[in-house]
Design a protein around this nucleic acid. Structure first.
Lengths: 301, 301
DNA sequence: TGGTGCCGATAAGATTTTCTTATGGAGATT
DNA sequence: AATCTCCATAAGAAAATCTTATCGGCACCA
């Protein structure tokens, strides 16, 4: 135990335990382990010099009981936490007046996810104007960042420019998009080998994040798509429609939402070695200009 | 930079910088290094998503300037800190009602130091009754703790019982107590060798924390006190008075206050190897019963 | 105009704090 | 009595914070 000062974290922990009256459940809600709570509560108690929970009854009645002092402190702690949240809100309001953020994204992002992100942005920074820019490819998003046309981009790894920085926020493997009538569409998971003799449509290689990895994967499964790609396109929307029309099948990221294209379904891929390609979504920004506002937005994603 | 939440520490740092308008001086007052401030302020800014200080003018005008948002936040931060201090005060008041703490100490502790400690205790825990127990020796303090007669003891290392725990709060070397008329009393520092032919009075060995170490030190300086101790006593007060009466000289800790005994002065010892005996004052308590109140008091010392 | 000092930012490594996993022990439940 | 639930403890891992050393910009002075 070292000398240190009361922190808001301890108040957050305390109020959670004091309202749940149960260390285990409080820990779960706070996304920490139970011992972390025990420790921090003890630390808080020993700094205050006051027992906040009744240790005698803590075990006797199988539940945690607040002492008189603990009850009093709970009120104050909640008040403090509330004020601290308000303070953050206020300073954000004052500091973000008349600011605009240009936000680039591309189709790969599920619409509900995009909406969720923008709503969170707006909730935390109500006075900031967010301008959305739909761009055709993950590469276009990164180029727009470098060109300064957007401030923040929702795109995919890898980063193609050294000036960019990124924070991943989700990843998935490959799925295969099939017409509903396709024989394999009835399977829950499609083995990669079963696709050896298909015709393919694909995003054109310069726009594609993992073109070569996919080819490598196919070769491990004993076939190549080299001659079997009947059409290259520039957008996932177009791709999906070609699949619907039966020109071929296509690989799409498992987190891509095909709901908007009727007649096409996506099935997860089963890869022999289990080594599916990993596609990582990320928020990206210009590393050289880490404005506090952008950093806060990044943390919200 | 990792995701973490605003903490009171950051508010403390921010208010200090915002009022001093000078990182260096703020760091000094907070007893941290200047980069720590820069880092924490940046962290705070990026979590809030708002610039609190004007980075353009930060260098231009040779002083730090608050932004509009920073000014607003300063008010709220001060308010929050004030409330948090009040919350601590309140919970201490509620939680410490009708509690008493038996505090043992012994003469070695300078009276002003004791008063300072007790005042600090009283300031933080105004509703706690502190009962002072002056005990004759450092050993008696530890025995009273083990016997449960006192809750907290101001004593000296080493700990003589495995059930005790302690936190040091000050240390010093040996000094020699001389009658003012003694020839060596005119020196600012007394070389140990100069004491080879003195007569000695001393605290009796069973009550003495470092009896053997002192003998060892003397032997390194080329003499022994073995036959030269003309009187053993049981308290420092008695010891000082015997020195005043000229029965002999005595070793006392450098932090012992002789001001109360006129006619006796203490002079720091100069030891050949520079290896003076180290005497460490400490707060001690029973390790098995670490009541939060005691822990908080220990931290105050 | 070039040197010098002040001041804040940055980088990298060390330290301290916090958290996690594993385990213990006391009461409650069956 | 046996098992289960739940909080406390211990020890090692992870993460945050802090420190030292250094840079670069600006101001002041000659």
């Amino acid at each position: 135990m070292e000398i240190c000062c009361m922190e808001l974290r301890q108040l957050r922990y305390f109020t959670e335990v004091a309202t749940a009256l149960h260390y285990g459940r409080a820990a779960e809600r706070l996304c920490v382990s139970q011992p972390a709570l025990s420790q921090q509560i003890q630390l808080l108690e020993s700094e205050l010099g006051v027992e906040l929970f009744d240790h005698q009854q803590r075990t006797r009645q199988r539940r945690v009981v607040l002492t008189e002092a603990g009850t009093a402190f709970l009120t104050e702690a909640q008040h403090l936490l509330h004020l601290s949240r308000q303070a953050v809100e206020n300073v954000r309001r004052v500091g973000s007046k008349q600011k605009t953020v240009e936000l680039g994204y591309y189709q790969l992002l599920r619409p509900d996810r995009l909406v969720g992100i923008v709503q969170r942005f707006n909730g935390s920074f109500p006075d900031v104007q967010f301008h959305l820019h739909e761009l055709p490819t993950f590469r276009a998003v990164q180029e727009a960042l470098v060109a300064g046309r957007i401030d923040l981009g929702l795109t995919m790894l890898p980063l193609l420019h050294p000036e960019l920085a990124a924070r991943p926020f989700g990843q998935g493997g490959l799925a295969v998009a099939l017409p509903v009538a396709h024989p394999l569409a009835s399977l829950a998971e499609v083995p990669l080998e079963a696709l050896a003799h298909e015709k393919w449509v694909e995003i054109s290689r310069p726009l594609h994040p993992v073109y070569d990895e996919i080819e490598h994967l196919c070769q491990q499964a004993g076939f190549s798509r080299r001659g079997a790609i009947v059409q290259e396109v520039s957008s996932l929307e177009l791709l999906s429609n070609l699949v619907r029309l039966g020109l071929g099948v296509a690989f799409v990221p498992s987190f891509f939402d095909l709901g908007q294209v009727p007649g096409v379904v996506a099935r997860p891929l089963r890869v022999p070695g289990g080594e599916n390609v990993v596609l990582t979504q990320c928020v990206a920004w210009l590393a050289e200009r880490p404005a506090p506002l952008l950093q806060a937005l990044v943390a919200l994603v």
